[in-house]
Nucleic acid binder design. Sequence first.
RNA 1: GGGCUCAUAGCGUAGUCUGGACAGCGCAACUGGCUUCUAACCAGUAGGUCGAGGGUUCGAAUCCCUCUGAGCCCGCCA
Length: 570
Amino acid sequence: MNELRETVALALEKAFNGLKTKDEIIQLLEKPPAQEMGDLSLPCFSLAKELKNSPQQIAGDLKEKIKSIKGIESIECKGPYLNFFFETKDYAKKAIESALKEKEKFGLNNELKNKKIMVEFLSPNTNKPLHLGHLRNMSLGESISRIYEASGAKVFRTQIINDRGAHICKSMLAYMNWGKGKTPEKAKKKSDHFIGEFYVMFSEKAKENSMLEIEAQQLLLKWENKDPKVRKLWKQMNSWALKGFKETTKRFDVKFDKEYFESDIYLKGKELIQEGLKKKIFTEQNGAIYIDLEKYNLPNKVVVRADGSSLYITQDIFLAKQKFEDFNLDESIYVVGSEQALYFQQLIQTLELMQYPWAKNMYHLSYGMVYLPDGKMKSREGTVVDADDLMDEIHKMALIEIKKRDKKISKNEAKKRAEIIALSAIKFYLLKVDAVKDIHFNPEESISFEGETGPYIQYTYARAKSILSKAIKPKKIDYSALSLPKEKELSSILNSFQDAVADSMNHKTPHKLCHYLLELSNSFNSYYHEVSVLKAEEKEKNARLALTEAVTITIHNGLKLLGIKTLEKM
RNA sequence: GGGCUCAUAGCGUAGUCUGGACAGCGCAACUGGCUUCUAACCAGUAGGUCGAGGGUUCGAAUCCCUCUGAGCCCGCCA
C-alpha cells in the first residue's frame, strides 16, 4: 500500500516536471470514498491556482503525461480527481501473505515499543455490587489496555479499591442492626449482592430515622481509631464484596496486575502537601490547605481539611506519584466517567504545579454516563442494571438462539457458546459508540444479536471457519485468481487493519476498531453470498481459501483487542 | 452565574481532530433471496434543512463566531 503510494507519487513528480516534490504529492493523495473510484486519488483543486488552470483540466493533463505505473492497473479522470486503480493481484497478495504469515501478530504495530503504560479502571466501592456503568468502564479499560499492548507497550492494569469511608460504614451499620449474623452462604446470595442489600437497606431506614446518619459517622470514627470489633466486621464485609467482584471480573475476562487499597493509602499524601506548603505551592486558609488554580481557569481545590484530615485528592496525589515510581511509567491513564472531568483537570494541574515531570503524562480517559429509561442509576436506591443479572439475562437469550439452530447440542457446549456470545453482545454494544457519548440503556431494545453487534462479527468468523474446515489448506496460491471487485475490496480492508488498530490507539477509543470489524464482516458476508469458495475451480478455490483465512485471522485479532472471544461454530 | 461535553432519517449511530467526489451504517417499515460453503446472513425500496444563523474557503457535517436545546460538573463528598 505504502510502496504503491510512493510509486504513484514518484510518477506524478515526473509528470509535474519537478513543480511538486514526491513528499508534497504524498500529502495530497487520498483514499477515495468508494471502491469504484479507485484505490488512490489526487484531488486537483489546490493545484488550480498555481497552475492557473481548472482542476478538471489539470487532472486530464496529468493523465496524458503518465503512461503506465508498475502495480497500477488503470488511471482514470473523474472530474477534478485523478484516480488510480491498483492491480488486484499484488494488492491481495500483500494483504493475504501478511495475515497468513503474521497470524496473531497481524495488525500489530511498534509505535509504543518499550513504553510502560498504566491503565486504571473499574475501581469499585466495596459497599455495592457492580452495575452496567462498571461494565462500560471495564470494557473500555480492558480494550484500551489490549490496544496499547498491540502497539508494543507494556501495560499494567490497576484499580483502586475504595474500601473505606462513610458509605462503607453505612452498609456495615445496616448489617450490625439487621444482619442477624447472616452470611452470604447462609442467605444463598452472591457475596457482593449480599453487601449491596444492606447498603440499600440503610438508605431506606435512614429516610425515617435521621439518627442513622450520625451513627454511621460515629462508626467511621471507630473505624479510624482501629476499634478491633469494627475492623473485624469491616474486613469480613470487604472480603465478601471483593470475592463477589472477583467472580464478576473473571467472568468478564478482566484481570488486574496491581490493586491499590484506599484503606492503605488514605492517610498518605499529607507529607507531600506539607513539602508543597513550604515551597508555597499550596496556601493555608483557616487551617485548611488549598491550591490556587485561578490562573488556569479552574476552581481552587482544598487538599487537606482544616482538622488535618485527608480528602480523596490527598491520596490521589500520593497514588499518582506512587504509580510512576512503582512502575517507571511513561503514561498513566485513568478510565473514569465524564462527571469527574473537572476533578482530573484539578488533580493534574496540581501535580504539574508540584513540578512532577510526569504530570503531563497523565490522561483522564473520560466516558459518558449510562442512563436507564427513568434516569441515572442510583445504587443506594437500587435502581441499577446489575452487572451479573445483565450477563445472566443475555446469556439466557443467547441460549434460546443456540437451541433454535442446533437441536442436538450438548448442554455444556450450549452453555459455553451462550456465554461467549452474551459477553460479545454486551461488550460490543458498550464499545461501538464513541466513549464521549452518553448511553441511554433500554433493557428491551438495547442488546441484540443482529445488525451491528458482536455476535454478527462472531457469526461471520464462524461461517468463514466452517469453509476452511471443509477444505485442505492450499500449498501454492496464485493471486491472479483473485480478480473480482469484492476480492479487491476485501484485500483493501485487510490492508488497512493495522491503520485501524493504530487509529484506535492514538485516539484512545476502541469504537473505531468496532466499525472497522463491521465493515470487514459486511464485506465478507456479501462476498460469501456472491461466490462459492469450495465449489470454485482449483486455482480460484485455493486463492479464495487463503483470502478467507486472512479474514478469519483479522477478525480474531480485532475482536481480541475488544476483549471478545471468537467461536468456531455458532 | 461559570466551566466542560454533546446535537447527523422515527430510534440508535459513523464521519468532525487532518475541509474534497452523491453524508455512510444498524434497528424499526416495505420487497425479494434458504434442496446451493451456517438466513445471528445478503440484496433492494422508502426515510436527511447534518440543532439555528452568520463567517472563512474554489469547496463546510467537518474550521471560526453568535445563538438555542440537552447532559455533566463547579463540596473542607468520593
